[in-house]
Design a protein around this nucleic acid. Structure first.
Lengths: 209, 209
DNA sequence: TGTACATCAGTGAACGCGCGTTCACTGATGTAC
DNA sequence: TGTACATCAGTGAACGCGCGTTCACTGATGTAC
């Protein structure tokens, strides 16, 4: 009895399921249509509910968007990194670039990385969303360098810088490839971006390679 | 007399001046607040007019946004490229990266490159705006490689690819640096992106350098 | 186990707001003679 | 040069629409005895 109550009961279970549906539909809308695409009416209809009930789950639209952003990125980060170990740092960047900067990722935004979808939205949003965006980007950067945490201290700074530039190029390539619309230019951007991402180099200009 | 009429007369001159004010205010709003920031009421008030008169100048909001995008990019492209000749292709990329990927550019969006401000907006917009965005990006790419049009035919494809990746990284760095909000991470992104942009390399993975 | 009351997720109408667009009107500018 | 009419950039009220949020209400679930 106590156990069953601890599990939540029928009502709590249904509420949790409803919240999960709301979050999933908000996450998809967020990635596909941005902040303005997360209209409460639409999200609730997607989740087979009416809009009035929304406020039993989230304080306001802002809270939903923040939760949806975290949800979406946890999902794509896990799928992106995969399980395959990489032989070297360049091999890792090459593999991650191949899996991120490609036409399928560009063409399916509802399942894609929210960092690439929301650059402009986050730039214009308030500090709260920007902080969430920054925290999620940081988690992603840490996931990129994680397998090389054993590398010498002296190399850590270089890896971090290269991961930063790698993310800027990856996000930039996909965002730009979407912005120009379908066509040859979009494909060219992805090809060039993918190649350059695998060869990113952040040595300061003073020290020639 | 005929000359004065050819110049347009008082009414035509005033109309042209009003149109220029509308366009300038729309271009600033577009860069700072995106497509939704270009509200006709606001833009017309900025231009010292009332909203009803808008349709004497533009067919609809879409036409204004397209014209403002072209206007904004012509301006920033000219300022970005400057007049200084560059000693070499790497020197050109290094100089352009320094002038694009920096805190001042990040922090003054109303005067900044619209390509970086509108990636997400253009990705979700209709084909007409995407075509304009693509055409403006193409003009920018052409301006980047223009001084090296005399280079051997065999090098042209490489220069174009590197210009593509360079733009993806430049736009991505500024867009990402804005998205994370002010702080150390934002500055790190710009520093790493700037260094990597000056060293962009799009050789295919099969041929090691 | 059965009954009476309390809780609260979800419903659906309503609100105020800003948006893009339309439209009858005004009055300075332009044109015809 | 002077007068009568035509044009049209700009005004300001009005429209329908979708938005986020509020709120009185419902009815199934949960609790107390």
């Amino acid at each position: 009895m106590a156990d069953i109550r601890a599990q939540g009961g029928v009502r709590a279970e249904r509420k949790a399921a409803a919240r999960a549906r709301i979050l999933a539909s908000a996450a998809a809308r967020l990635r596909q249509e941005g902040l303005d695409g997360v209209a409460i009416n639409t999200v609730m209809r997607d989740a087979q509910l009416t809009h009035g009930g929304f406020y039993a789950h989230f304080k306001d639209k802002q809270a939903l968007v923040q939760a949806a952003l975290v949800h979406a990125l946890a999902d794509t980060r896990r799928r992106w990194m995969g399980r395959a170990p990489d032989a070297s740092w360049p091999a890792r960047l090459e593999r991650l670039a191949r899996r991120y900067i490609n036409p399928a990722h560009r063409d399916h935004p509802a399942d894609a990385c929210a960092l690439a979808a929301l650059t402009s939205d986050a730039a214009r949003a308030g500090p709260a969303l920007q902080a969430t965006y920054a925290a999620e980007l940081t988690k992603t950067l840490e996931a990129i360098v994680a397998p090389f945490a054993e590398a010498p201290e002296a190399d850590q700074a270089r890896l971090w810088d290269e991961a930063l530039a790698f993310m800027a190029l990856s996000v930039g390539s996909v965002a730009l490839a979407r912005a120009v619309g379908p066509g040859a230019l979009s494909d060219q951007i992805l090809r060039a971006g993918r190649r350059a991402a695998a060869r990113i180099n952040t040595a300061p200009k003073e020290s020639p390679r």
